[in-house]
């Protein structure tokens, strides 16, 4: 049975059997033993401020700082920024900030705000590093992806953000894009992610491969949580809603973002089912898309 070749196709999506086919394809029949059981819920926080960017798309650093503080306190349930950071990381941690470098890169203003906020909370500046794709001796990671669709993986936000840690990103561009979740289980990454903070100030809702400004819009938001799959699932919901709004007709993501479902059902990294995700929204509510 192990020798039987099974290919994930469009038909699996229509049948709703993609999870099963993926599990079987990637892990073989052994996958079936580990399917049952997971029922915990995940939380995702969306903080938006209409004034995060001006009409020329310049970021207001003060507004962004405020949004970051609100995000941290709502993700952790703590009453202030410092307590929130100490819930997530410790001063002894060597912390890697992992922004998106290309195609809708993470705003420098957000990277700066996170770094300044960590330092204000008592984390030594020398313990905070820009760590995209570097296999240095980090003990904690803060993932800072930009919200975007992607032409090879459907979505290129949370799960894909660690692709450079694989050492061979091109290996994940083709058939193996479904396996992006396995990167999160590599030793240099596994268990180290303390916060996923998505830069949703100015997202891209079409696949690219390069940015086309017709498909960008000012969402003016941060999307955060500690479950990477849940955060990606909420990002997907926003991107899908924006695509339909732009075209006024069904405009499915193509290829479908299998990596998100695989990250849940095959690699057990979190919840991809929106029914198991609590979304808390704070601030500007217009065109929220969730």
């Amino acid at each position: 049975m192990k020798n039987k070749k099974i290919t994930v196709t469009r038909r699996d999506f229509i049948r709703g059997s993609v999870g099963a086919t993926l599990g079987f394809t990637i892990l073989g029949p052994e996958w079936l033993k580990g399917v049952a059981g997971k029922s915990s819920r995940s939380s995702v926080v969306i903080v938006r401020d209409k004034n995060a960017m001006d009409t020329a798309l310049n970021v207001d650093r003060n507004v962004l700082e405020n949004m970051l503080e609100q995000t941290l306190t709502h993700v952790t349930g703590k009453s202030n920024r410092d307590e929130a950071w100490h819930e997530l990381v410790s001063p002894q941690d060597i912390i890697g900030l992992v922004p998106t470098p290309l195609m809708n890169p993470t705003h420098d203003e957000l990277i700066d705000a996170v770094k300044a906020s960590l330092i204000s909370a008592g984390i030594p500046a020398e313990n905070i590093r820009n760590a995209q794709g570097r296999s240095v001796d980090l003990t904690a990671l803060i993932s800072l992806p930009g919200l975007k669709a992607h032409w090879l993986t459907g979505i290129g936000t949370v799960i894909k953000n660690y692709i450079l840690y694989s050492g061979a990103p091109r290996n994940y561009h083709h058939q193996n894009s479904t396996k992006l979740g396995e990167i999160w289980n590599l030793p240099q990454v596994k268990g180290k992610t303390k916060l996923i903070l998505v830069d949703a100030l100015h997202p891209v809702c079409d696949k690219g491969p390069q940015v086309d400004p017709r498909y960008r819009w000012a969402y003016n938001g941060l999307i955060a949580g500690t479950d990477p799959v849940a955060v990606d699932a909420v990002c997907l919901k926003i991107i899908r809603a924006k695509r339909e709004e732009l075209r006024g007709e069904p405009w499915p993501l193509s290829p479908p973002p299998i990596c998100v479902e695989a990250a849940d059902k095959v690699y057990k990294l979190g919840n991809s089912d929106l029914n198991n995700i609590d979304i808390e929204t704070i601030g500007w509510a217009e065109d929220l898309l969730v």
Binding site: T7, V8, T9, L152, H174, T178
Partner: peptide, 15 residues
């Protein structure tokens, strides 16, 4: 097939 999939998804493999 990468371009085909970006227009109309058939399979992640080059079938």
């Amino acid at each position: 097939y990468l371009v085909l999939n970006s227009l109309f998804y058939l399979s992640h493999e080059n079938i």
